[in-house]
Write a protein that binds this DNA or RNA. Structure first.
Length: 570
RNA sequence: CGGGGUGUAGCGCAGGGGGAGCGCGCAUGGUUUGGGACCAUGAGGUCGGAGGUUCAAAUCCUCUCACCCCGACCA
C-alpha cells in the first residue's frame, strides 16, 4: 500500500476527551474513528490489525478441533425469557421490536442461540464432544462506555462453546481452551495471567479471566508471588490478618462526640481499625440488609450479592436507613431486631471490639461475638487486599491492575436444561449436555496491545499484529532516480509477499519519520539521496535507535531474514 | 441513574452583550527536503438544538441533545 493512497490520515492533535493511551494513539494513527459513544469504525490500518488478531485466533481454535460457524446478531427476546437472562442481563441487553411488534434483542453473547442449535443437531453421546465458535458483532448497552476500545457498546467478539457428556469431559475441553487461549495471547505478544473470576450474568460455577497486567486496566487482580494463586478481586479469597485474643471484658459505653467513620473512631480512641466493628447498610432487592465487618476490612459487594441471592444490590438510601431507625455513624448489631444481618467471619478474629451504641455520639467498648449479638449469616464477604495471606500457601498477596482480554466459564447444564439440549448416553438414558463458553474481545486485544506496547512517539506493534511489517520511507520522491529505485524496491518487497507500507509522499522527512514512529510498523526502511550514493538502504527496528545499512540489491532478502528470525513479540 | 466537565471552520482551541477569531490541515503558485520547513493568495462556520430576555445574543436565562471524566453498573 502506498501512503499517498491510504484512506486514513494521521492526526496531529487528538481531542483532550481521549485520555487513555490506546485511545489517543489509535485515533492519532488513523486506525479508528468514533461514531457514537462506545461505537467505533475501524479504518483500513486498524482493520488490518483486527484481521491479524482474528487469523491467530482462528488458527489456534481450529488446531484444537473447533469448528467455525456464524450466528445472528438479531435474536428473539423470547429465547432470553426461556433462560431467564432477560432479567439477569438487565439493561445491558439492547432490545427492539419489529413491525409486527415482536420483541427482539441484539445479542450480547450467544449461549441461548447455540444451545438451541445444538439441541436440534445433537442426539447421542456419539455426537460429543463438540467445540464450536464464531467471530461476531455483539451489543451491550453499557452504562458507561470508556477508554476508547476498552469498553464499548458494539464490539467484535470470538465466542466458543464446548459441549460434553459429563463434568470430567468438560474439564478436558476447558483445559484445551485454556491452552488455546494461552497460545493466542502469546502469539499476540501479550503476557497474560489466568485468574479465578466471578461468573456474573453468564452464570455457571467455575470461571477464569485472562488478564493483561497494565496500569490502565480497570480490573484489579490479587495474586500470590509464591504460588500460582491469582484471582479477580471480586472473587479473591485471603487469610485475614488475625486480631487480638483477650479475655472478654464487660461492655462499657464511651462518648465519641462527632465521630462517624471508622478512621475517626480509631484515631479518637487510639486503637487500630482492626479493634472496631464496621456497619454498612445495603438494599438487596429493596430489602434492607445490615452488614458487619471488622473495621479494617472492606465489603466485597460481589460476594455479598452471592450470599444474599439477590439481583439488585445497592447501598441503602438515607430514607431507608432512617425508616429502620438506624444511626449511621454509630450503628452496630447490638440489640438489633427485625433486620437481616450478615457478618463477615472476621468478627470472630478478635475480641473486645468497639462498636456503635446505636445512638449518636456514643460507642460501646468490649463488644464480643457471639456473647453480645447474633447474626443471620456468618460468611466471607470482604475484599481481599494486598498484604493479606494467600489462601493456598499463606504468602503475602500482591495486587495489580489489569485489562480483561478473555473470559471463560464452565456453564454446566444451566442452558442445556432450560433449552432442552439433551443427549442419549451409551446406556440409553437422557442427560443434559454439559457446556462451557469462552470469549475473547478482539477490540480489547487491539487496545490492550497498544496500552502495553507504545512509547512517547507512538505505537510499537508486535510483529504478529502489525498492519504492515515494513515501512518503506522514500525521502525526495521528486528525484526521478530515487523514485525509480524506491519503486523497484517496493515492487520487490511486494513480490515476495512482504506486507509493505510505501511512504511515497512528497512531505518533508520529519513528517514521514513521525508517521513511521506513530504507526508502529516493526521495520523502517529509508531510501534517500545519501543512501543512493552508497547504493544502500537504511534499515531500523521500531524498537531500536540505530539503523543498519544494507546494499539495495540485497535489501529484500535481508528484510525477509530479519523478520523471520525475530520472535513474534516486537 | 448521581456528581463534574465540554460543545465555536475538517482537527485542536481562544473569545463571553454590538465586528466570528487563532494554530494545524485543505486548495493554488513558488521556495524547500535526514525529525511535523517557509512565503504569498484563497476556500471553508445556521457558534450542538429549541425557546426566552434585549434595540442587539456565540456571549445572559430556561429547556433539550450529544460527548468525556468520576461513581453506580458490567460475559
Amino acid at each position: 500500500m502506498r501512503s499517498s493512497q491510504l484512506f486514513s490520515k494521521t492526526l496531529r492533535q487528538v481531542s483532550t476527551e481521549a485520555d487513555t493511551v490506546s485511545h489517543q494513539l489509535l485515533l492519532k494513527a488513523g486506525m479508528i474513528y468514533q461514531v457514537a459513544s462506545g461505537v467505533y469504525s475501524y479504518l483500513p490500518l486498524g482493520l488490518r490489525v483486527v484481521r491479524n488478531i482474528e487469523r491467530i485466533i482462528r488458527e489456534e481454535l481450529d488446531a484444537q478441533g473447533a469448528q467455525e460457524m456464524m450466528m445472528p446478531v438479531l435474536q428473539p427476546f423470547e429465547l432470553w425469557e426461556r433462560t431467564g437472562r432477560h432479567v439477569s442481563f438487565g439493561q445491558g441487553l439492547f432490545t427492539l421490536s419489529d413491525r409486527r411488534d415482536r420483541k427482539l434483542c441484539l445479542g450480547p453473547t450467544h449461549e441461548e442461540v447455540i444451545t438451541e442449535i445444538v439441541h436440534h443437531n445433537v442426539n447421542s453421546y456419539r455426537d460429543l464432544p463438540l467445540l464450536l465458535y464464531q467471530i461476531q458483532t455483539k451489543f451491550r448497552d453499557e452504562a458507561r462506555p470508556r477508554g476508547g476500545l476498552l469498553r464499548v457498546r458494539e464490539f467484535t467478539m470470538v465466542d466458543a462453546y464446548s459441549f460434553d457428556a459429563g463434568e470430567a469431559e468438560l474439564d478436558l475441553s476447558y483445559q484445551k481452551m485454556i491452552q488455546a487461549y494461552k497460545n493466542i495471547y502469546s502469539r499476540c505478544g501479550l503476557p497474560t495471567m489466568v485468574v479465578e473470576a466471578d461468573s456474573g450474568a453468564i452464570g455457571g460455577k467455575e470461571s477464569h479471566e485472562f488478564m493483561l497486567l497494565t496500569s490502565s486496566g480497570e480490573d484489579k487482580i490479587i495474586h500470590c508471588p509464591n504460588c500460582d494463586y491469582a484471582a479477580n478481586v471480586d472473587k479473591a479469597q485471603s487469610i485475614k490478618p488475625p486480631g487480638e485474643q483477650e479475655e472478654p471484658l464487660p461492655m462499657e459505653e464511651v462518648a465519641t462526640p462527632g465521630i462517624r467513620t471508622i478512621e475517626e473512631l480509631a484515631s479518637f480512641l487510639h486503637i487500630p481499625k482492626s479493634r472496631t466493628l464496621k456497619a454498612v447498610f445495603y438494599s438487596a432487592d429493596k430489602d434492607l440488609v445490615f452488614v458487619v465487618t471488622r473495621g479494617d476490612l472492606e465489603v466485597n459487594e460481589v460476594k455479598l450479592r452471592h450470599v444474599l441471592y439477590c439481583s439488585e444490590l445497592n447501598l441503602a438510601s438515607e430514607e431507608q436507613v432512617k425508616r429502620a431507625h438506624l444511626v449511621a455513624g454509630s450503628a452496630s448489631p447490638l440489640g438489633l431486631h427485625g433486620i437481616r444481618t450478615v457478618a463477615d467471619e472476621s468478627i470472630t478474629l478478635g475480641t473486645n471490639f468497639v462498636a456503635g451504641a446505636n445512638k449518636p455520639d456514643f460507642h460501646i467498648r468490649n463488644v464480643n461475638y457471639p456473647r453480645d449479638f447474633q447474626v443471620d449469616l456468618l460468611v466471607d464477604i470482604t475484599l481481599a487486599q494486598a498484604g493479606q495471606g494467600c489462601p493456598k500457601c499463606g504468602a503475602k498477596l500482591l495486587s495489580a491492575p489489569g485489562i480483561e482480554v478473555g473470559h471463560i466459564f464452565k456453564l454446566g447444564t444451566m442452558f442445556s436444561q432450560k433449552l432442552a439440549a439433551f443427549f442419549l448416553t451409551r446406556e440409553g438414558s437422557r442427560k443434559p449436555i454439559v457446556m462451557g463458553c469462552y470469549g475473547i474481545g478482539i477490540g480489547r486485544i487491539l487496545a490492550a496491545a497498544v496500552e502495553y506496547y507504545h512509547d512517547d512517539k507512538g505505537i510499537i506493534w508486535p510483529k504478529s499484529l502489525a498492519p504492515y511489517h515494513v515501512y518503506l520511507c522514500a525521502l525526495g520522491m521528486d528525484n526521478p532516480e530515487l523514485a525509480q529505485v524506491a519503486e523497484k524496491l517496493y515492487a520487490e518487497l511486494e513480490a515476495v509477499g512482504m506486507a509493505t507500507l510505501f511512504d511515497d509522499r512528497l512531505d518533508p522527512p520529519g513528517v514521514k519519520f513521525n508517521d513511521a514512529d506513530l504507526l508502529g510498523i516493526p521495520l523502517r526502511l529509508i531510501l534517500s539521496q545519501r543512501c543512493l550514493k552508497s547504493e544502500s538502504v537504511e534499515i531500523k527496528w521500531r524498537t531500536e535507535k540505530e539503523p543498519q545499512l544494507v546494499p539495495i540489491a540485497e535489501a529484500a532478502s535481508k528484510i525477509d531474514e530479519l523478520l523471520s528470525t525475530r520472535g513474534d513479540s516486537n
